[in-house]
Simulated scan of single mutants.
Amino acid sequence: MAEKLDRRQVRTKQLLHKALMELMREKKADGITVTDIANRASINRGTFYLHYRDVPDMLEQMKDDVFEQIKVIVTQLDFNELSQCAEKDEPYPLSVRIFEEFSRHAEFLTIMFGTNGDLSYVNRYKNFLTEQIYDKFTYLQPQEEKMHIPRDYLIAYISSANFGILLHWLESGMKQTPQQMGMIMAQIITYGPIISSGLRGK
């Protein structure tokens, strides 16, 4: 009986999530009411309140859940392993996993990163990515005097470029597979734009 109830709760949440995503394609979240979601999901308002306090609470839970799932993978990034894969013309497995995770949440992320989305949520990913790259590069190269450019500019370039690649992939309809994107990411990080463009050999 408990398992049947759990399945019903999961199904109800899926209907609520689907309804919210459909509505966010039409208008911003702050213009969406519980009644809007309940009507779109074909459930009553009381059922909504069994799961969430209000629309902001629902959206915040969804945002946190997706972010945490992606965060777990990103924190495992190893730039040495990534570079080794690029030198062998192989996709970096962890990059592939990141793109697979973005693909799983593509509808949600595309909406959240879009015009009806949440700029603070975009910045949450950007800031997290910047922190991760800073920590990992500082560990790999702790000596500032050996760097060819200031560390903060290098980190800004890498984090913006990588987040830009993820955004472009989502916005352009994810035509490439996660494996192909893992290869693209590894090549650009390892060789930079000049070599990746073919203007200079590896």
Rank of each mutant, 00 (worst) to 15 (best):
K4V: 14
R7T: 03
R7M: 09
Q14H: 09
H17S: 14
K18L: 06
L20T: 07
M21T: 03
L23A: 05
I32C: 02
I32N: 01
T33E: 05
V34N: 03
A38R: 02
N39P: 00
A41K: 04
N44W: 02
G46A: 11
G46T: 11
G46M: 09
H51G: 02
Y52H: 06
Y52R: 01
P56S: 10
M62N: 08
M62K: 05
V66W: 13
Q69N: 13
I70P: 01
K71H: 12
V74G: 01
Q76H: 06
L77M: 13
N80K: 10
E81S: 10
L82M: 15
S83C: 06
C85D: 13
K88F: 04
D89H: 11
D89M: 12
Y92I: 08
S95C: 15
E100I: 02
F102G: 02
F102I: 14
F108C: 12
T110A: 14
I111K: 11
M112T: 00
M112N: 06
F113W: 12
G117I: 03
K126N: 09
I133F: 11
F137M: 13
F137V: 03
T138I: 07
Q143K: 08
K146W: 10
M147G: 04
M147T: 07
M147R: 15
H148Q: 12
P150I: 09
I155V: 15
A161Y: 00
N162A: 08
F163V: 13
L166H: 02
L166Y: 01
L166S: 08
L166P: 00
L167H: 09
L170G: 04
E171C: 04
Q176N: 05
P178Q: 07
P178S: 10
M181Y: 04
M181P: 05
Q187E: 11
I189Y: 13
G192W: 00
S196T: 13
L199I: 09
